[in-house]
């Protein structure tokens, strides 16, 4: 099949290209099962080497190639041509400054992530037998969903609350905090919940739900945010949360 790509481009380093503009590329002999990333590579490798994007693993686990494809945040390597049709519009994710073409400045995103203490805290003595801490598989499963996050920014940059206020920590950071708040081995849930109760914490979430369908890892992002809100409201986190109460 033949596919036409319409790509949002910008290069601050080239006179005349400092402002965003659209450029079209036509690709022939496209297989419906080709990944959009492969098509962007074909454009770059066969037609215009200056097309710029981030990518690495090419199978949806490294989180490099988040972009807005036909108006929806996707990883270019995890969406196939058959899912996007013969006319494909590609632009950078929204809410972060564009550096060049499809590459945005990820620093504000990672800064938000670092704000929520996204690391394991447990200062108690280690088990005397020198072995692992114990945890039941049921407790392990409480936070399984949020361990899947690859920090691609698809959720945060799909969130209208984040677009409106870049100081909002955003869904990805809350997912990062959730992974520890609901881990029975961790001891810093209070500090994290205090951080997330601040004005730019979870309460900026208006439950718009854009984040959940944007997630390429199928994390139930809105639900995780809801669980954190509930934990803050109840002032405690373990053993009492009925997921139904959140919605």
């Amino acid at each position: 099949m033949e596919v036409t790509f319409r790509i949002r481009r910008q290069n601050p380093d080239v006179p005349g290209q400092e402002k965003p503009y659209w450029q079209e590329f036509v690709l022939r002999d496209v297989d419906p099962t080709d990944r959009v990333l492969e098509m962007l590579h074909r454009i770059k490798w066969e037609q215009d080497g200056s097309l710029s994007l981030r990518r690495s693993c090419a199978h949806g686990v490294c989180g490099s190639d988040a972009m807005r494809i036909n108006g929806v945040n996707r990883l270019a390597c995890k969406i196939l041509v058959r899912d996007v049709g013969e006319k494909v519009q590609v632009e950078p994710i929204l809410g972060l400054p564009v550096i060049k073409d499809l590459i945005v400045d990820m620093e504000p995103f990672f800064d938000h992530y670092k704000q929520v203490m996204p690391f394991f805290v447990n200062d108690e003595a280690l088990p005397e037998d020198g072995r692992e801490r114990l945890q039941t598989q049921a407790d392990r499963e409480q936070f399984d969903d949020t361990t899947k996050c690859i920090l691609c920014a698809c959720c945060t940059t799909a969130c209208p609350s984040f677009w409106a206020n870049g100081n909002y920590v955003g869904p990805a950071a809350i997912v990062g905090a959730h992974r520890f708040i609901f881990d029975t081995r961790d001891q810093a849930e209070k500090e994290r919940l205090d951080i997330l109760s601040e004005p730019n914490g979870v309460w900026r979430c208006r439950t718009i739900f854009n984040c959940t369908p944007a997630c390429p890892r199928d994390i139930e992002v809105t639900k995780a945010i809801g669980e954190v809100k509930l934990a803050i409201r109840k002032g405690e986190t373990f053993g009492i949360i009925q997921i139904d109460e959140v919605h």
């Binding site: 020198g130 692992e132 801490r133 945890q135 392990r140 936070f143």
Partner: peptide, 19 residues
Amino acid sequence: IELEHMGLPFDRTSEKRIS
């Protein structure tokens, strides 16, 4: 063991140990 102490979420056995 050290990775577990750093918080790595290993799956667990019925004895609550690393699967």
